[in-house]
Design a protein around this nucleic acid. Sequence first.
DNA 1: CAGACTTGCCAACAAGCGTTGACCAACAAC
DNA 2: GTTGTTGGTCAACGCTTGTTGGCAAGTCTG
Lengths: 194, 194
Amino acid sequence: MTTETGPRRSDATRAAILEAARVRFAEDGYERATIRAIARDADIDPSMVMRYFGNKERLFAAASEIDLRLPSAGALPTRHIGAVLVGHFLDRWEADDVLNAVLRGGVTHPAGAERIHAIFKEQIGPVVAGVCPDPAEAPTRAALAASQILGMALARYVLKLPPAVDLTRDEVIAWLAPTIQRYLTAERPHIEGA
Amino acid sequence: MTTETGPRRSDATRAAILEAARVRFAEDGYERATIRAIARDADIDPSMVMRYFGNKERLFAAASEIDLRLPSAGALPTRHIGAVLVGHFLDRWEADDVLNAVLRGGVTHPAGAERIHAIFKEQIGPVVAGVCPDPAEAPTRAALAASQILGMALARYVLKLPPAVDLTRDEVIAWLAPTIQRYLTAERPHIEGA
DNA sequence: CAGACTTGCCAACAAGCGTTGACCAACAAC
DNA sequence: GTTGTTGGTCAACGCTTGTTGGCAAGTCTG
């Protein structure tokens, strides 16, 4: 017997809190995104946030939950995986505030860094393992690709460096795709002094 | 007549505060790096921090002051500028905590982002303008290079993604150098839909 | 209608923050 | 040796934070 729970009256409030939390975490980071500010944005009392989410850390965990919806490794055109991935992440980053909340939270709070580790391992790892030549190199190659994608997100959405902000979607793809493609599929470079 | 000011007795304290501040800002970001914690690390009273630096924001400004000491554009082997730059930044990042303090502060506090904008414009811009084919493209190309270098720093020193941490200096250079080289000196890629 | 549960607001708490000003000891100048 | 300046401590301020518990409506169930 499943615990049959119909939609409650409070679901709207819950959602409003989550949405406000995402915006605040994305824009201000963990510490400056105060529960009081989030509650004000959601037009409710701060104590409601506590009732629904227990404490601030659990609120962040809920607000930064995300499924990257990466295409499965099999369904990918390996030759153009770089362009596909860059485009996919750009879209996800601009669709809502979750990725931004995760990124800023990851730099601001230890729990946020943990969350990024988990996403990296559980969602990015497998996809990369499916496309790169030697599975043993997958974590390294995934980290390289992540460094470029996170770096562009940092410059564009967090630091807002003007030239990075001004790039169009197609320009970002055209520049970054070959980089990601190489990190994931090219043969290992010659390492100086190895 | 120059204001002749000999070395004061307080210079040691000043330096201790600055050093402690850099460590804390680098490890905890702007908000969590409290003046009290910094003072405790420097083994002095919190009020001394105020006396010497006025307030927290000015302390951060002083602690995150940095000269990247980038080689001037002329003195660079254009063919290998990618490798030189990556190596240079890796060294600077690991030599002390300033760059880490700047990076984490930039994500944590508006004043930090401003500081990064300034460094980008005043120190990175000119060097890139000296090596890239069309000066008009310099800001864009500089932003692309910055995205990769900042991204690697983020993954390696802030988020501490294991595979990024485990890379040796030479491995990072071997992987990233071609990317930076291309961003700075290769001809513009074909932009889809332009 | 009576009672139980849900949704919400209000007021308050303890703790931690940046910041201030009064006070003390050592040193320098005359 | 007194006097002013410098380097430093101490205790407190006003404020904000996360968090808690009590209380008033509203809503469902019988």
